[in-house]
Simulated assay, not measured.
Amino acid sequence: MKIRTFIATASLVASGTLVAFSGSAQAALYTTCVGDGGAVTVSNDLVVPAGKSCTLTGTKVKGTVTVEAGADLVAAGATFNGAVNVEENAYLDLTGTTVKGALTTESAFGTHLEKSTVKAVDATAGFVYAVDSTLGGNVRTEAGELYVSGSTLSGSLTGEGNQYSDVYDSTVKGALTVDGNVLGGVFCAGEVYGAATWAGNADTLQIGGEGALGSCAGASYFGGDLSFTDNTAAAVLDNAIVRGGLTATGNDPVLVVGELTRIRGAVTGETAVAGASSARSAGRAAPQDRGAGLAEKAAERTAAARADAHEAGKSL
């Protein structure tokens, strides 16, 4: 592998695994990564070329990071000062890594964040799987799979048109919106300080307590208003404290409210007591935590990416 630096029409060739390009004297210099990168500083943008794999350990990138179509980037202990963009069928795996700019994905295979800090997330299609991470801005996912566990979000969290949006043991300091999810969603043992809304979802919504998606032993806290509207999902709200009011309108079946729920504000709409949910839940097998499936999917892609990068060779 080689380093090639192009500025205008001049070029310099040296040994190594990072390749830097610039189309003109005015264009920004960028570095490509194919293979294993170590604790170096990249002073410009970093690109993982289409279909290639890059692993970074302790690397610092001062510019924007782009993972092109079908490519893989696996980073541990890295720092990205700029934005990160993940393209179609590409994959991003970050462990103990800081992203100071926004993370944007477009029809990506998926994104796995573990013990990492990211400014904001905007994802269309693919999965977002965040564990024990800090998300500093708004998080929005659309038409994919969303799973958040043990994490803190400084802004809002939105799951729109996803397969599902599941949140466990996490704090959302802004608003929470789950809209039009095909398989509904779970909220377990978490906190939301803005308004929380579940609207137009199908299949199952389990907000605390016992339900078709398993058992949630911890209590949940909602600092603002809570709204369930126009859902066709079998929905259960239990073991929760709601500081604001509850709106439950247009739901079929109606929202089931468990005996451990405490609502401080007014209740608008139609609800049912917890005992009425047993007949609906009868005969439905409780699936495993959906995070296990995402963890397996992420682990397989990560392992393949590491193998490809190792085969390509080591960096400086």
Rank of each mutant, 00 (worst) to 15 (best):
E210A: 11
T302F: 04
F187P: 04
T117N: 15
G150I: 02
G70S: 04
I263P: 11
A123K: 01
F228I: 10
A276Y: 07
G180A: 06
S154H: 11
L56H: 02
G214W: 04
F228W: 04
S133A: 05
R284I: 14
A307R: 09
L92Y: 01
V182W: 13
G194R: 08
G38T: 12
E270F: 04
G101W: 10
S170I: 03
V65T: 08
T104V: 13
A130L: 04
A248T: 12
T268W: 05
R243F: 10
V61N: 03
A25K: 14
G70N: 00
S156N: 09
E191Q: 15
A202S: 07
E88Y: 06
T268I: 12
V178G: 12
G126P: 08
S24E: 01
D230T: 13
D238H: 02
C216N: 03
A272N: 01
L316P: 14
L94C: 05
A78C: 12
F127K: 01
K100R: 14
G16F: 07
K119T: 08
L176E: 04
G211H: 01
T32P: 03
V61W: 00
K119M: 12
A217C: 03
R262G: 09
R262Q: 13
N239Y: 00
N89D: 10
G37A: 14
I7P: 04
Q163W: 07
V254L: 06
C33T: 08
V257E: 03
E300A: 15
T98M: 09
L12P: 06
T177H: 13
S43Y: 14
A102E: 09
G155A: 11
D203R: 08
V242D: 06
E210L: 08
A75N: 00
Y147N: 03
A75C: 06
V13N: 07
